[in-house]
């Protein structure tokens, strides 16, 4: 599926400027998403990355021919499967060591006591990181068992995504359609099992995270 766009908006320079304009980016990304969603109503789609622009139809045909094998394999991989997103948030305080596990105390002078306290706080934070990450890995492992493939996204910017605490999981799971219920029930179950973790499910998504072309740095 192709659409023509004005070079005045999608040429390299204007696009660069637009991509840093959040309202523009939001409108364009949602339009992209809408078109893919509609297309998905007619059959299996392989979404291309947002703002994939070819200068004319001939180049689109060339791309389709060149990527024929890759696209065919991708279609086979995503057919009958759906992408779901799972994010996990934690409040770092819930993962701090208990006060009972108190580390070093004292110190001969107020100065060293202060330094020891600072150090203990830093160690506590690292411990909390570690514990929260381990918890996220447990959740990831349980969900992976139900998925045909997984993809990791970086933790989202806290201001952009408007959350507090730590995002310890931001993954996509490609789930066979006959396991959809099992997968969503598993997310719910994990959320109940780990009350110190906030799990958020999103989807169904078109298979955005599982259709990227193979990395080929130097295209011919």
């Amino acid at each position: 599926m192709v659409g023509s766009v004005p070079l005045a908006d999608f040429g390299e320079e204007p696009l660069r400027a637009h991509l840093e304009d959040l309202p523009w980016l939001e409108r364009a990304a949602r339009a992209h998403h809408r078109v893919i969603g509609r297309a998905a109503g007619y059959g299996q789609v392989i979404p291309l990355r947002f703002a994939t622009i070819y200068h004319d139809d001939g180049r689109v045909r060339t791309m389709l021919q060149e990527r024929r094998d890759d696209l065919t394999a991708t279609l086979a991989r995503v057919a009958g499967r759906t992408e779901w997103g799972v994010k996990a948030y934690v409040d770092p305080r819930a993962f701090l060591p208990d006060p009972g596990e108190e580390g070093p105390s004292g110190g001969d002078t107020p100065g060293t006591a202060y330094l020891l306290r600072r150090r203990a706080q830093r160690d506590d934070k690292e411990t909390a990181h570690l514990r929260a990450t381990e918890r996220a890995e447990e959740i990831h492992t349980a969900l992976t068992a139900l998925a045909a493939a997984t993809a990791a996204h970086p933790p989202q910017d806290a201001r952009l995504a408007a959350y507090e605490g730590w995002m310890v999981l931001n993954n996509s799971y490609l789930v066979p359609d006959d396991r959809t219920e099992e997968f969503t029930a598993s997310v719910t179950g994990l959320g109940e099992r780990y009350p110190d973790v906030d799990l958020e499910l999103s989807g169904p998504w078109p298979p955005y995270s599982f259709t990227a072309p193979p990395e080929r740095e130097e295209a011919p």
Partner: peptide
């Protein structure tokens, strides 16, 4: 859909 979730995916 949340914009950040969408951008994670469409901007890859």
């Amino acid at each position: 859909v949340a914009l950040v979730d969408l951008l994670d995916r469409v901007l890859a």
